[in-house]
Computed example of a mutant assay.
Amino acid sequence: MTDKRPPFPPFTEETARQKVRAAEEAWNTRDPERVALAYTEDSEWRNRDTFLRGRAQIVEFLRDKWRRELDYRLRKELWACTDDRIAVRFEYEWHDEQGQWFRSYGNENWEFAANGLMRRRYASINDLPITADERRVAL
């Protein structure tokens, strides 16, 4: 394992918060290649009803996601952590090509390799249609 991404497990509350903040910042760039570098080469994902394995599938998934989910903006929050695992709650807002806004809520369970890269990500997500005036400015 030549790739390393501190902080490394085992996580404390402080280092888990750092990991969550780094993930939030990376996802808000909407750069699939940058985001994928935080995951092991053979990382396993479940995102809603989609199952992925490896960085190449992650990159393609994220490209497609951000083609559909326009003006995407995400906020993540630490829920819990243990040695090599972090649980996160999140919400993000986006709109489709027709201008319909959504707020998507969910939870993620993350498992990390010793080098600090995420080897498993399991996400459950629900979408709520909202009006433009219901958007959260602070998001």
Results as ranks from 00 to 15, higher is better:
42 D>F: 00
62 L>P: 04
72 Y>P: 00
63 R>A: 08
49 D>H: 10
81 C>F: 14
56 A>S: 08
93 E>P: 01
92 Y>P: 02
59 V>C: 12
36 A>E: 09
54 G>E: 05
70 L>T: 13
86 I>H: 12
48 R>W: 03
39 Y>W: 09
65 K>A: 14
55 R>I: 07
68 R>H: 14
41 E>V: 05
69 E>G: 10
47 N>Q: 05
86 I>W: 13
72 Y>K: 00
79 W>L: 15
47 N>I: 10
63 R>I: 06
80 A>G: 15
36 A>F: 11
44 E>R: 07
34 R>N: 06
44 E>I: 04
51 F>R: 00
75 R>A: 13
51 F>N: 00
33 E>M: 09
84 D>Q: 11
82 T>F: 08
62 L>R: 05
75 R>Q: 15
91 E>Q: 10
87 A>T: 15
52 L>N: 02
43 S>D: 03
51 F>Q: 00
53 R>V: 02
66 W>M: 02
68 R>W: 14
72 Y>S: 12
63 R>F: 11
68 R>M: 10
76 K>E: 13
71 D>C: 01
33 E>Y: 08
88 V>C: 12
90 F>V: 07
75 R>K: 15
77 E>P: 01
63 R>K: 15
32 P>Y: 03
69 E>C: 12
45 W>P: 02
33 E>A: 12
83 D>I: 03
83 D>W: 04
52 L>T: 03
92 Y>A: 05
32 P>K: 07
46 R>M: 01
45 W>M: 07
52 L>Y: 00
62 L>H: 08
83 D>L: 07
88 V>E: 12
54 G>A: 04
82 T>P: 04
54 G>F: 04
82 T>E: 11
76 K>Q: 13
92 Y>M: 03
59 V>I: 14
43 S>A: 10
31 D>C: 07
43 S>W: 03
46 R>H: 00
77 E>I: 11
74 L>Q: 11
36 A>I: 10
44 E>P: 00
63 R>G: 09
86 I>G: 13
64 D>S: 13
39 Y>D: 05
57 Q>R: 05
88 V>M: 10
64 D>Q: 13
78 L>K: 12
91 E>P: 01
51 F>T: 00
60 E>N: 09
88 V>R: 09
33 E>G: 07
84 D>Y: 09
84 D>N: 15
64 D>A: 12
43 S>V: 06
76 K>M: 14
64 D>Y: 11
55 R>G: 08
62 L>I: 02
55 R>F: 07
53 R>I: 07
63 R>N: 15
64 D>F: 13
74 L>P: 00
60 E>G: 11
40 T>P: 02
64 D>P: 03
57 Q>A: 11
55 R>L: 09
